[in-house]
Simulated assay, not measured.
Amino acid sequence: MRRLLLTLATTTLVVAIASCTPDDGRVVAPSGDAAALSSARLEPVTAQSRVRAVPSDQWDAMVRAGMVREECPVQDRDQLRRVDLNFTDFDGQDHRGHLVVNADTAESVRHVFDQLYERAFPIARMVGVEEFDGDVGASLAANNTSAYNCRRSDQINAPFGESPHANGRAVDINPVQNPWVDLRCDCWTPSADNKERTPGAGKIVADDAVVRLFEAQGWVWQNIDVPDYMHFDTGYPSEPPPPVRQES
């Protein structure tokens, strides 16, 4: 069934792209919010996720955004991988997105998100934080699911060397549905609208399917002393996950 849906989604995507293509063959660039998602939304939805090297142009954008700096634990592109993933949005439409993670974490992330896709767990969007100029606040406000980010000094929650996000071993999922308490302002971020842990589309609650999938791979949910419902990591200080368990 998922493969049939993928075929239909790919056909729909090709038609949609064709409708935005002038007679001279140029593809009209999206504007506004769509522009920030163009690199993910214009990729065809396929049957297979994949792990690959971070493209050089994406790495350059990450460096320009300040996500790779002298104090960051990641200094070389080979330390990271890009995991290309299919996901279903809140309208039931399939898309192609990606997460940038540590090379030692890529297969674990791929396994979990393949399972989430099979369960049609809704995800709003999934692009690298360089699309938001490295600003984690902007990424959270846009309800962007993301992973690697050596955050700015005024946005960090842990020393750079120990930080799960700075090491590419943490994922934040649907921040709007799964906010956290930012101690810098003692406020729910990106908003308090979904602070109550009641089941709902895209929300993560204790012992639900999302938590169980991550925990089966050795990850920890909201590994911090304040509510952080969006956040999973492999441990603090940051460390690699155990080998992937295929049976989960």
Rank of each mutant, 00 (worst) to 15 (best):
L6C: 11
T7P: 00
A9R: 09
T11E: 13
A18F: 10
T21I: 01
V27K: 14
V27P: 05
A34E: 13
A47H: 08
R52K: 14
A53P: 03
V63H: 02
R69V: 03
R77Q: 13
D78V: 15
L80K: 01
V83M: 07
T88V: 15
G97T: 02
H98S: 12
L99N: 03
T105V: 12
R110T: 07
R110S: 12
V112R: 00
L116M: 12
A124L: 02
M126Y: 02
G128A: 08
F132S: 11
A138V: 03
A138P: 00
A142Q: 11
N149I: 14
R151N: 13
S153T: 12
N157M: 08
G161Q: 13
N167R: 13
R184H: 11
R184P: 06
S191I: 02
E196I: 07
R197S: 09
T198C: 01
A201F: 00
K203A: 11
K203S: 15
D208R: 02
A209Q: 14
V210E: 08
V211W: 06
V211P: 05
R212G: 06
L213R: 02
V220S: 07
V226Q: 10
D228P: 00
F232H: 09
F232T: 10
D233G: 00
P241N: 10
P243Q: 07
P243N: 05
R245M: 10
Q246A: 15
